[in-house]
Design a protein around this nucleic acid. Sequence first.
DNA 1: GACTATATGGAGGGATCTCTCCGGTTAGCA
DNA 2: TGCTAACCGGAGAGATCCCTCCATATAGTC
Lengths: 198, 198
Amino acid sequence: MVDESAVPGGRRLRADARRNRELVVAAARTAFAEDGLAISFDEIARRVGVGVGTVYRHFPTREALFEAVLLDRVRQFVADAVALADADDPGRAFLGFVTAVIDQLALNQALCEALEASAGVGFETAPTVERDFLDAVGTLLRRAQQAGAIRSDLDVVDVRDILVACATAQRRASRRGGTSRLVAVVCEGMTSAEDARS
Amino acid sequence: MVDESAVPGGRRLRADARRNRELVVAAARTAFAEDGLAISFDEIARRVGVGVGTVYRHFPTREALFEAVLLDRVRQFVADAVALADADDPGRAFLGFVTAVIDQLALNQALCEALEASAGVGFETAPTVERDFLDAVGTLLRRAQQAGAIRSDLDVVDVRDILVACATAQRRASRRGGTSRLVAVVCEGMTSAEDARS
DNA sequence: GACTATATGGAGGGATCTCTCCGGTTAGCA
DNA sequence: TGCTAACCGGAGAGATCCCTCCATATAGTC
């Protein structure tokens, strides 16, 4: 977690600036989750009740705002994955991680978009975070595969696709007041015995 | 397939109008497939090399253009599903249908968006087509479930979610020059024996 | 070739979004 | 309390996009 009371130069923000910054972050957190990364700065400023200039001063780019609002979530995923890396039951650890991440992603449109991007907003200012994520998930995956719990033809990029796909389906389902069974299907498919593979 | 040489009133289009209409349809087909339903009319006009007024005259709304360009695809899906409704092997029929539709959807961004919408562009001018689609897929699904080939807790909405999710993953994978294994995982998960269901 | 219904292009008005700039305001300090 | 650096709001320029309108061009017909 970065110290939000200081600007990169180290100088301490004035009280009103700090207050506005926090309001912007809070509004952006909600807006990103609901509407994704495409939310306009005008709209964020309108919701907070400040001028758009104030938003731009604190966050010159959409990436900067993303970093302040959402990057910690991804870092938390990495930490969770690392913590599970030497679990007793690698298959259970992997599936637990996957379903937990899907639940989080389903609540957050922007996080899905950033994760699936490869060509989008999100990790420009912190290029290693995406790699850390894939590395940590890859470790969990490999251990689960070595334990025979997960089909061996999957790679970490497949897993990322699966996370995003399931989260998207889950979010759509919850909008219509239900739950997507895609998650259950995918977990079943990832764990089932290896045969009839092309 | 509608007769594209006539307007709804039945009057025959002038030759230049017919030519332009076809150019617009061709450009829209490509643009929809690549960029989805959000492609602007200005952009389509620019690609065709006509004025934007010409595009609007032929297709007053995005839905009208969608209908001219893509609705036949959905109708074809329905026809395929109906044709498979009394296949000898319902499980095989269902899975074959699903993978074929995914392959088509993966080539067409707009078709995915329309199918997943519920709240989007696409079926406004032909409201029965979406229902026909769900009905036909539902029939295939039920027969496959009765034959014990597909897990019984899935409904047709799950299947629609699965189609869109797999197609999206497939398209992303093909953009990076590969193939998504999500389809294989999902097929495995849909067919596996019923146990450990929550 | 002339006439006319039909079709065309693109200007234009309204809306939204991005990002910058600067006159006015205020927090924090002496 | 008064000063000043820091901060604020929002106007405004430039870029799209949507959709309409009408002067101009032309296909089809006589």
